[in-house]
Write a protein that binds this DNA or RNA. Structure first.
Length: 295
DNA sequence: AACTGCGCCAACCGCGTTACA
DNA sequence: TTGTAACGCGGTTGGCGCAGT
C-alpha cells in the first residue's frame, strides 16, 4: 500500500519548534485534550503536521515530563529493563515515570550502549576494530553503517493472543489441595482453552506458547511480578527459596513460583538468545535463585 | 580567531498495528 | 473481508554547541 509521509506537505514548518508554536500547541491541548493529531494543526492554527505535533507534545511539552539528568537508579533500571526487553523503548519508558521513550533511547545510544559495550569487551583485544567504533559520524565518514545490537524483534506487536493468568495461578494455589500444583494457561481469544496440570505438563504446554504474542503490552504484567506479592509464595514452597529447583515437588507451591519464573526467564532468554530453540527444553536458561540480579 | 571533530538530543522517517467504515 | 486513515514505535538524521588544535 504505502502512504505519503504526513510531514512532507509543502507549506508546513519543519525543524525546531518555536516558543510561539509550543504555546499554541500547549494551549490547544489544554483546552481540547490529546488525540486527533491529524486535525489538530489545522484547528489549532499550526503549520505543522499532526505527527510532528504529537511528538512535540509527548516528548517535550507534556506537563508530567521529568527534566534533568538521568539518576543512577534510573540508569540501573534502564540497563536491567533493556536486558529484559531489548529496544522496546516505550515499554522501558513506561517503567520510568516522567521519562519519554525518545529520551531513554537517546540516553542509551549516547551513554549506556558504549558503557555496556566497553564492559562486555573489556577483555577483548581488538579494540581498534573500526566496525565497533562508537561514533556514528566518524563511521559514516568512512562508510560504515551503525550496527544496532542484535534485536530479536524491533517492531512492536500488541499482545492479544495469550497470557499467563496470575490470578488463576493464585486461586489454584490457594486451594492447597493435593492438586495444588496446578497452573493455568489461558488463551485470551478462547477462554475455554484453559489448561492445567503438573509442572511437567506446564513445561510441555510452554512449548506451544507463542512468545511473541505474549510480550509487549502484557509484558509489564510479567515485570510487575518481580515486585509483586506473588513471589511471596516461596513461603509455601517447602521452605526453599523462590525459584529453587529443589522445591519442585508436585505438591509444592514452589512449583507455582517456578512456573511463573520459568516463563519470565524463558521470555528473557528469547530476547537474549535469538537462536534459542523453544523445542529443545535443555536450552531454556538455568533458574538460579537470584536470577534477577544477574540480568 | 578559525577550523575540525565529536557528543548530544530534538525531530523526522518508514513501517507495523489498530480502528473503523 | 477489505481498504484506508490514524496512531504509535523504533531507527535515523541534522544541527547546535563544546572542546581540542
Amino acid at each position: 500500500m504505502g502512504r505519503n509521509p504526513s510531514c512532507s506537505k509543502v507549506g508546513l514548518n519543519r525543524g525546531a519548534w518555536t516558543a510561539a508554536e509550543d504555546k499554541i500547541l500547549t494551549d490547544y491541548i489544554k483546552l481540547h485534550g490529546e488525540g486527533r493529531w491529524r486535525n489538530l494543526p489545522k484547528k489549532a492554527g499550526l503549520k505543522r503536521c499532526g505527527k510532528s505535533c504529537r511528538l512535540r507534545w509527548l516528548n517535550y511539552l507534556r506537563p508530567d515530563i521529568k527534566r534533568g539528568n538521568i539518576t543512577w537508579d534510573e540508569e540501573e533500571l534502564i540497563i536491567r529493563l533493556h536486558k529484559l526487553l531489548g529496544n522496546r523503548w516505550s515499554l522501558i519508558a513506561g517503567r520510568l515515570p516522567g521519562r519519554t521513550d525518545n529520551e531513554i533511547k537517546n540516553y542509551w545510544n549516547t551513554n549506556l550502549r558504549r558503557k555496556i559495550h566497553q564492559n562486555d569487551t573489556k577483555s577483548a583485544s581488538n579494540s581498534n576494530n573500526l566496525s565497533e567504533h562508537p561514533n556514528r559520524k566518524a563511521k559514516m565518514k568512512i562508510g560504515i553503517k551503525n550496527e544496532s545490537p542484535p534485536a530479536v524483534r524491533t517492531k512492536a506487536t500488541r499482545c492479544s493472543k495469550c497470557f499467563i493468568d496470575q490470578q488463576e495461578i493464585q486461586n489454584e494455589h490457594n486451594k492447597k489441595t493435593d492438586n495444588d500444583s496446578s497452573f493455568v494457561v489461558k488463551d485470551s481469544t478462547d477462554f475455554s482453552r484453559i489448561q492445567s496440570g503438573s509442572y511437567n505438563e506446564f513445561k510441555q504446554n510452554l512449548l506451544s506458547f507463542k512468545p511473541d504474542a505474549c510480550l509487549d503490552d502484557e509484558l509489564h504484567n510479567l515485570s510487575d511480578v518481580l515486585n509483586s506479592e506473588f513471589w511471596g509464595y516461596q513461603e509455601f514452597s517447602d521452605g526453599n527459596e523462590k525459584g529453587n529447583k529443589g522445591s519442585l515437588s508436585p505438591s509444592s507451591g514452589g512449583a507455582l513460583a517456578f512456573c511463573d519464573k520459568m516463563l519470565e526467564d524463558w521470555i528473557a532468554g528469547i530476547h537474549q538468545e535469538a537462536a534459542i530453540d523453544p523445542h529443545n527444553l535443555t536450552q531454556i536458561p538455568d533458574f538460579g535463585g537470584d536470577w534477577l540480579d544477574n540480568i
